[in-house]
């Protein structure tokens, strides 16, 4: 019976969550039907769906999605990995922390988009420039969160490791990294989120493929349908990335999510 009422409650929550989307959809449709704004600025919901299907069908969408995802992947791997390693070593070595920390913190103050013109002058307008730009975006959250996680490993656990003579790689993989893992995962999430934003920015700024390019080109030709479709697609991909990360997080941090059910047995 309790299970039943729980199910009812969940259903009620789901219905509540639908109120806003439905209202927005109704407002959108009526704004179009009542001709409250120009069709050049707002297309009907169904037309948006048609546009999405058309883009998918023509293969244009797939090409652009792959181009964007490829850039994110390469940029994130370069920036995220170097951020992780630097954060790890800074967390392990107080000297390195004091040596490199101030510069990294100071350079964080530069809004990274300001670097885009410089990166283009240095690396040209091709893929390399985009990788570098995305890598810079991915670097900062990773370095700070990894450092945070590693440098705050409790002294109690470090002592325990000493008592049981854990050193080197064993100390790192059994004590430091698991303890820092929640923080590292937060870093990965922010890092990937920023990568996804930076790729769209870089593609709007100058590219000949990618979802950002698709939207920027459509804007120049005043194709509102493609701009809106692009927005839906980048949102959906952002959502999926986040979702996948949440699943991975639950897997990796199972010890954190386990409740104290065992105690009541």
């Amino acid at each position: 019976m309790i299970k039943n009422s729980l199910k009812k409650l969940e259903l009620k929550d789901k219905l509540l969550a639908l109120i806003v989307p439905l209202l927005l959809l109704a407002a959108w449709q009526s704004a179009v039907s009542l001709e409250l704004c120009s069709p050049l600025l707002l297309i009907p919901p169904l037309t948006l769906l048609d546009t999405l299907l058309y883009l998918a069908d023509s293969g244009e969408l797939t090409i652009n999605i792959i181009a964007s995802l490829n850039r994110v992947l390469v940029g994130f791997l370069i920036g995220g990995l170097s951020g992780f390693l630097l954060g790890l070593f800074m967390g392990l070595s107080p000297f390195l922390d004091r040596f490199a920390g101030p510069l990294i913190k100071a350079s964080k103050q530069v809004p990274q988009f300001a670097l885009m013109p410089l990166i283009i002058l240095w690396f040209g307008v091709d893929e390399l420039a985009k990788y570098v730009f995305i890598a810079i975006g991915a670097f900062y959250p990773m370095v700070f969160n990894t450092y945070q996680g590693v440098s705050t490993v409790s002294k109690r656990y470090r002592e325990l490791a000493r008592v049981f003579d854990y050193r080197g790689a064993r100390f790192l993989t059994k004590v430091i990294l698991p303890s820092a893992m929640p923080s590292i995962i937060t870093g990965v999430r922010h890092s990937l989120g920023l990568s996804w934003m930076f790729v769209v920015g870089a593609e709007i700024f100058g590219a000949d493929t990618g979802l950002g390019y698709m939207m920027a080109a459509a804007r120049n030709m005043f194709q509102i349908d493609i701009v809106m479709a692009g927005l839906v697609v980048i949102g959906a991909i952002g959502f999926s990335i986040n979702f996948i990360l949440q699943v991975i997080e639950k897997r990796l941090l199972v010890w954190r999510f386990s409740s104290d059910q065992g105690a009541s047995k």
């Binding site: 929550d13 509540l16 969550a17 109120i19 806003v20 989307p21 927005l24 600025l41 989120g193 996804w196 934003m197 930076f198 769209v200 920015g201 709007i204 950002g212 939207m215 920027a216 459509a218 804007r219 005043f222 509102i224 701009v227 809106m228 692009g230 927005l231 980048i234 949102g235 959906a236 952002g238 959502f239 986040n242």
Partner: peptide
């Protein structure tokens, strides 16, 4: 109740990278 009504939509829309709004807003 407000959380249940607004939070799901908020968290979904939040996944759109902010820069992506630029073309639409400019239009």
């Amino acid at each position: 109740t407000a959380e249940k009504i607004f939070a799901p939509t908020f968290h979904t829309v939040r996944q759109v990278p902010l820069i992506g709004w630029i073309p639409l807003i400019v239009m």
